[in-house]
């Protein structure tokens, strides 16, 4: 009897574990599958033109995502251009130069900074950053402080802790014995960083940058509040800084708008919105995969 009882338990825990795991996996697969399936109409309607089209007028059934992809990339580039150097520098300082006792408070601030909700960032963006950017851009006569630049700056602050934490992880992977050996040879602490730590942590740091970029691409709330949400903004010429001073739209901010609610009744319009979601998911997931690959190859030896 006791044996029977025991056996029953074994299969219960095991079965429940597998069932719940498969449920979670199923949810993820379902999400991807839904986005693919529900966006089919727009791909049939516009083909690759959905990605390259520069105009989005849903009443005329014109769906082009290019301005939003552009906006997403520009905002993320601004964010990364600022957050990557500062975040990597700060991580180098805390993990290579700072004595352990001082490292703790910095780490704590960092963890807290990472926890600040995006809606709070958005609020600060509206109250403070928008005005500062407006003043800064005065010479170029901006229409308002809601610009791609504002969104990029706000995102830079938001992803800074991510860059820092992941860079620190990468630096921790460098064996302490190598640092000691290099110091024993008479290298200065900076030379140890530049010649030992950085080269070895490079794949991990690149991964940190990619994963942070992924986060920047997908952030909705904070960007939504300060980006201006102006459709159909396409730069001409293509490579110019001018759009930074103007309002724009990102994939995520479009999805967060009221249009998502309006679109549901119309299969084509809805599929266009889901198509945007699919593009965003594809962008972010490829960055995540690339980052994960780099991190793994970093830890392998």
């Amino acid at each position: 009897m006791a044996m029977e009882h025991r056996r029953g338990r074994v299969s219960l825990i095991k079965a429940a574990s597998w069932a719940f795991t498969l449920l979670a996996a199923g949810a993820v697969v379902a999400m991807v599958g839904l986005f693919v399936w529900q966006s089919r109409p727009v791909w049939r309607h516009a083909g690759w033109g959905f990605l390259s089209g520069r105009e989005w007028f849903y009443r005329q059934e014109i769906f082009g995502a290019a301005p939003m992809i552009y906006g997403t990339l520009v905002v993320a580039a601004v964010a990364l251009g600022l957050a990557a150097p500062i975040g990597i520098g700060a991580a180098l300082f805390t993990s290579e130069f700072l004595p352990r006792r001082l490292r703790i408070p910095v780490k704590v601030s960092l963890e807290l900074l990472a926890g600040v909700p995006s809606v709070v960032y958005g609020l600060l963006g509206i109250l403070l950053l928008r005005g500062w950017v407006y003043d800064l851009l005065e010479p170029w006569e901006p229409l308002s402080g809601d610009t791609l630049l504002t969104a990029g700056l706000l995102l830079a602050v938001m992803i800074l802790p991510t860059v820092m934490t992941l860079t620190e992880d990468a630096l921790r992977g460098v064996p302490a014995a190598q640092r000691l050996a290099a110091r024993g040879l008479g290298l200065t602490a900076t030379e140890v960083v530049l010649r030992v730590s950085l080269p070895q942590a490079a794949p991990g740091i690149l991964a940190a940058v990619l994963l942070s970029l992924g986060r920047a691409l997908g952030e909705m709330i904070a960007v939504f509040l300060v980006v201006g949400r102006q459709d159909n903004q396409w730069p001409s010429p293509l490579l110019t800084l001018r759009p930074l001073t103007e309002a724009g739209q990102t994939l995520a901010s479009k999805l967060g708008g009221a249009e998502t609610n309006i679109a549901y009744g119309d299969p084509l319009h809805w599929s266009a919105m889901v198509g945007l979601a699919l593009v965003l998911l594809a962008l972010v997931t490829s960055l995540t995969l690339l980052g994960a690959r780099l991190r793994r190859s970093d830890h392998a030896p």
Partner: peptide, 13 residues
């Protein structure tokens, strides 16, 4: 000083 007084560890690094 450390270039004038070198060191060799137990485990080669």
């Amino acid at each position: 000083l450390r270039t004038r007084i070198g060191i060799l560890f137990q485990q080669p690094a």
